[in-house]
Design a protein around this nucleic acid. Structure first.
Lengths: 227, 227
DNA sequence: TGTACATCAGTGAACGCGCGTTCACTGATGTAC
DNA sequence: TGTACATCAGTGAACGCGCGTTCACTGATGTAC
């Protein structure tokens, strides 16, 4: 790549980063930031924006692609966790907690990325919404495949696992955003305590899902007689 | 109430309705609509807005209050469903499907209300976000209390039921928005088929949660040896 | 290697527009007598 | 019931501002010879 191309890529990245920063910080969202703001934050003149993107929608779609890399990296991290769980004979309880902690650690590394995806999933730009929806589907399908590799779920069909992976993905998005906003509500409770409580809560929810899957039967319309 | 007060209430309601319409239709969101647009849609001059709200944030907070009435009406509807389930000896499978259908029927009656709450839950306005967060908590607590009235869950503690009710509320929001956006993605599949598939999927997810609760034990840190 | 020209990322002035907000106002409704 | 005044929801002009987009430009980098 030539010197000129390198510098162009740097400016492009600066614009993407600027858009991400502006749309995640200060409680803003992508639909409320302006082209001029993005250019200013990136250290460029407004008109230079057009050398990289046709309009804010095009930047938005490209931003989803860029940010989705984080999702894929998280998937890898969770995959390792699953592999560990599969190879050792540890209790489900502690490995679940481990996976949940790994999830929140991943979020703390790039909170802006997560805030962007969660907010804009139902946000103002149609183009961005569709791009995120596509990524969510990929993530859900891959998670179902990962779950199937676990010994506990080996007997289950992919179709059944996709039911739980869809719940997990949707729940993850809620968890992520609640986790990120934990420090914003300044009550008397120390942040560390709030975090610990939240992890416990999320872990229990994951365990409950696990119980559901463990006691699942492929035929969904059975009559259940419960005491 | 005097004639003058009545007319003022009408204008106020027109402003609320206008804001809801503008922020839900056409893929917009609350953060992207302007005070002048709202006034125009309500048939008022921009300056008349200030007779009712200090700014758009105040209107947003009041709009959450107004729209939350729908949530409470839905809760009543679901409560009836639970009462039915408790009194008859019907299978869990069919009553679950019934509750899910009742939920989507409620959404179809006021799709804009749901779109507003789901979108703005993580949206651009801090004031609106906090107001919605408060409503979500109320809804979750009430749902846990409702669940406890079911014979199947009578033995469970409220604390444990709040785990599943929190999942249900978060999942409901995802379901609601996906349901609303079903007609927007114009593929070859007929809408009726897509709806039926979606209901089946949501029902299965609810059943899976039910299995999880049915096989739940209060002590969360048990070692589970799973085949 | 040196020169002459082409490319093109970034510049800066200019435009028309819708925005939020102010202000003095109007005239229908409400109230006191 | 009738009159005189008060209230106040809604009006319309005006403001300064940031916006998206256009245009002709500059000057560093790339390319051909």
């Amino acid at each position: 790549m030539s010197l000129r191309d390198e510098r162009k890529q740097q400016s492009r990245q600066a614009l993407l980063d600027a858009a991400l920063t502006l749309s995640s910080e200060g409680g803003r969202s992508f639909g409320t930031i302006s082209l001029r703001e993005v250019a200013r934050e990136a250290g460029l003149v407004p008109t230079a924006f057009y050398r990289h993107f046709q309009d804010m929608d095009e930047l938005g779609a490209d931003l989803v692609d860029y940010v989705s890399g984080t999702l894929h990296r998280l998937r890898m991290s969770l995959r390792e966790g699953f592999a560990l769980s599969a190879s050792t004979a540890q209790s489900t309880a502690s490995t679940t907690r481990g996976s949940v902690e790994r999830f929140f650690t991943a979020i703390d590394k790039q909170p802006n990325y997560w805030a962007f995806l969660v907010r804009e999933r139902w946000g103002a730009s149609v183009v961005v919404r569709r791009a995120i929806d596509k990524e969510v589907r990929f993530f859900s399908v891959d998670m179902a495949e990962d779950l199937q590799k676990l010994p506990a779920f080996k007997s289950l069909e992919l179709q059944d696992l996709s039911i739980v992976s869809e719940i997990l993905v949707n729940l993850s998005f809620s968890w992520a955003m609640s986790w990120i906003t934990l420090p914003l509500f300044d009550e008397e409770t120390p942040l560390a305590d709030k975090k610990e409580q939240f992890i416990q809560r999320a872990t229990r929810q994951a365990q409950l899902l696990n119980r559901g899957v463990s006691n699942w039967e492929s035929k969904p319309d059975l009559v259940i007689t419960k005491t």
